[in-house]
Write a protein that binds this DNA or RNA. Sequence first.
DNA 1: TTTTTCTGAAACCAAGTTAGTTACAGTATA
DNA 2: TATACTGTAACTAACTTGGTTTCAGAAAAA
Lengths: 150, 150
Amino acid sequence: MKSSSKFAVAIHILVGLAVVYFRKPQQSVSSENIAWSVNTNPVVIRRILGLLKKAELVKTITGASGGTQIGKNPEDITLFDIYNAVEERTVFHSPYRTPNAECPIGANISTAIAGPLQKAEQALENALSKVTLNEITKNILEQIANKQGD
Amino acid sequence: MKSSSKFAVAIHILVGLAVVYFRKPQQSVSSENIAWSVNTNPVVIRRILGLLKKAELVKTITGASGGTQIGKNPEDITLFDIYNAVEERTVFHSPYRTPNAECPIGANISTAIAGPLQKAEQALENALSKVTLNEITKNILEQIANKQGD
DNA sequence: TTTTTCTGAAACCAAGTTAGTTACAGTATA
DNA sequence: TATACTGTAACTAACTTGGTTTCAGAAAAA
């Protein structure tokens, strides 16, 4: 199983936007700024922002002094929303070369495993939808505050 | 998120071995035979069998008229055992380029999301471990029987 | 003993995916 | 009009994957 980093980067982006939103709700952030925090190229960030925008998790403003703001209250964004926005394929979707239909097992295996795999995926998604962006952001802000207290 | 087909193929292999086991417990199956059912190359099958063998889900016999048998009772093999045997990385593990440590968010994001992601993964694994190879095999044997009744 | 039939493993390739990069058109502000 | 952004196309390098060929080793069969 190979995972893309898109999900992790998307969480990172949204946490950053949430922090900005808490401090100054109308402020927008440039892709270059975000790229600095994530440690990558602004275009990589803009690509992911495009996906988040489609899901209405962020809104972007073009033109000078434009940038991105969070699209809704961090309370109302779950990890599943983010996951759903950036990861197009399901966990178990595989480019599984169609099994041999002449073989009784090959002919029936796909439907036999579809149910259980879907349930497992459902369980994953349920767990993700229980965690809000707000919680994660608060968690990070606490970590930062604690370190400053040292 | 990109998935390999190894998990699906591994299930296919084990269902096949379970069917053989039910019919004739001491019979072993060649990788070529399995490859025919899966519709791929015997070497691909042997690669996956190697992983399943390490997990003691199958046992192989070398030499002429050798092959593979299931390693334990299908009742005692869960989808999680199979998943665990063939998929080395975790669902969310990403080659995430280390975020910028100079940024407070970058410095703290990894630990903040580790917990929730681990819980989600745990949920997935729990769901997988509730399904046995036996159930899937019986399901397939039923499907086959129903079709013959047409 | 020799032949045959298997597994195990190395080595290689083609295809696909991903992150990163450059470049540039379009847009809105100052 | 100059500036500072986004959006997007196009390209590349690195990596992963499944498929394939090849061969050494093992064990049964002849």
